[in-house]
Design a protein around this nucleic acid. Structure first.
Lengths: 332, 332
DNA sequence: TTGAAAGCGCTAACAG
DNA sequence: CTGTTAGCGCTTTCAA
């Protein structure tokens, strides 16, 4: 049988109000009663039922974190960042992975909104997030992280600077003399991909080079997906001499495939990957990556959520800059 | 203003009981009222407050998942498995990362136990988990995953077969003619480490080789930690010709350091790593790993928790077998 | 088929 | 300094 506040109160010959006050320190209670109540609490190992507390106070001190995948090291680092910051602030995190399922995402947001959670950090599956406004219009605190879309109103955003990411990576390849540069990406119709490609195009423009749509290849965000994607890209566009790959698992797959095909990196085709994974330096050849600070993004997203919870006016789009880690695969 | 069941009832000219029944399908309601109520619910986009529901029904349909770290790819895959299975069963997951902080772990369990959660899956920070019995004795559904300790009573366990992992890896090295085999591990006083070392010792015994405690090296579970650990191990014990590394990040660091030191793998020292990471095949040399099925472990842990929730008698220790992925770093 | 009402365990006026 | 009491929003007997 679960012991409740009433039980404690009865045994101490006081009211539940008094017990509540000693637990929460909300009022001065006489030394004597205080001690007695504390003792009984310890004796029964009593912990207040937080569901009841939540109902009464109409908040839960927990935040929802909805991500679109989980295998991705970028995402899991971001989750780590959110978790860490949440802990610092005494918040719990309700984590859900939508697995890129748009409908499930909408369901999840709806149930999180049902007061299970004080606010939500969402990395959406697609740009189709108009449904969010239903909640955000009523000031349900929501922040978009990593991916975003302008349709979402009243939500701060914390993302990487994906435009710059695409621009920098492409420019680097261009500076090395490449002109036919392929791009392998994993998720269409999403700000991360779109912005990186926009950066890619602008870098091309800077060199007065035309944009060729066929240099873009869509694949699955897995090692196998990367193998298939390079293969298909290179078979179709034989003159490509460099490729920018937007996902770490795909980068690994692509390199693996290139080796199998006896295509030399970077001599025959140069590679720049995205997201710095631990082993990048000991791969043959060591791979050049452009990375976004996943855990900082996660932490900042939590900070933004907290701001939003405390001040429903808060609005901002924070974009964190990328950094290149130069190694051999780009021909440096 | 948040709309409640009372509001719906009022607008439909019925009692809250009726509304509740149409929402939950708990009783037959006349076609007419049913339609009317449904319509109003849709109109207001009403979703029942789950905190209130939880309080009333005394359950939350959410499970706590407490892990000890998060950078680790083994853990994040395990989390993925738990998440996935939870979703299939309509459960939410409250994720907490203790970051190997034993005291925080105890706090977390206590607050999760405060009815925030129907049960908990715990990968503990240490073997010091006697405090758990306080909860499990009162049938708070708990399952230990990955790491465990016999002091914990009334909890099913789902882990990898760490003994076999240590045994197989060591035996493989022994079969290749190595006799002086180092072990690099990251977390002391924990079943995973202890069992793998027990397996290591038994493999040695099978070859009538003595166990040398100095061949064991403790380090941090990071790339840097791996670099430092091999270096210190090899400096101290110059005759070591092979090393078994119990963590993927450390494996990467170790290989990196060995390369820097111009020590040839596998000629000078052979390597077997733990946990198959995506890039293992394209590293120079490709690294041989022994892996435990992290996502299956996660899924099974959730299944076990569900069993425990529905039947407080349920008790079992499920140990999933390892598998070797043979590549070049072991000298194959 | 429907409604009244009790109550889950807690907090917070308010009164004493 | 302490107790009484009215809910938070829902489910669920029980009676009509």
């Amino acid at each position: 049988m679960k012991v409740t506040m009433k039980d404690i109160a009865k045994e101490a010959n006081v009211s539940t109000a008094t017990v509540s006050h000693v637990i929460n320190g909300t009022k001065q209670i006489s030394e004597e009663k205080h001690r007695k109540i504390k003792a009984i609490i310890n004796k029964y190992n009593y912990v207040p039922n937080s569901t009841a507390k939540n109902l009464r106070k109409n908040k839960t001190i927990t935040a929802g974190l909805v991500v679109s995948s989980f295998r991705d090291s970028f995402i899991s680092q971001m989750v780590y960042g959110v978790e860490e910051r949440a802990r610092e602030h005494g918040y719990q995190i309700l984590l859900v992975n939508t697995n890129e399922d748009r409908n499930y995402e909408e369901e999840v947001i709806s149930s999180l909104h049902a007061r299970m959670v004080d606010g939500v950090i969402l990395s959406p599956t697609s740009s189709d997030i108009g449904y969010l406004n239903k909640y955000t219009k009523n000031d349900f605190p929501t922040v978009l992280v990593n991916r975003y879309d302008p349709v979402a109103e009243n939500t701060p955003k914390v993302t990487g600077d994906d435009y710059q990411t695409g621009f920098d990576a492409t420019l680097h390849l261009l500076d090395h003399g490449h002109q036919k540069i392929g791009v392998i990406y994993a998720v269409p119709n999403v700000s991360t991909t779109n912005e990186r490609i926009r950066g890619y195009k602008d870098a091309l423009k800077k060199y007065h080079l035309p944009f060729n749509e066929h240099y873009l290849e869509l694949g699955y965000a897995t090692v196998d997906g990367g193998e298939i994607a390079v293969n298909s890209l290179l078979e179709r566009e034989e003159d490509i001499t460099a490729v920018f790959i937007l996902n770490d698992l795909m980068t690994i797959g692509a390199i693996s495939k290139l080796k199998e095909l006896m295509i030399k990196i970077p001599e025959d085709v140069a590679i720049i990957g995205f997201g710095d994974f631990a082993s990048a330096g000991i791969i043959a050849p060591p791979v050049t990556n452009i990375a976004l600070p996943a855990d900082t993004i996660g932490k900042t997203a939590f900070d933004a959520l907290l701001n939003k919870i405390n001040n429903s006016e808060y609005m901002k789009h924070i974009e964190l800059p990328p950094s290149m880690i130069l190694r051999k695969s780009c021909g440096c």
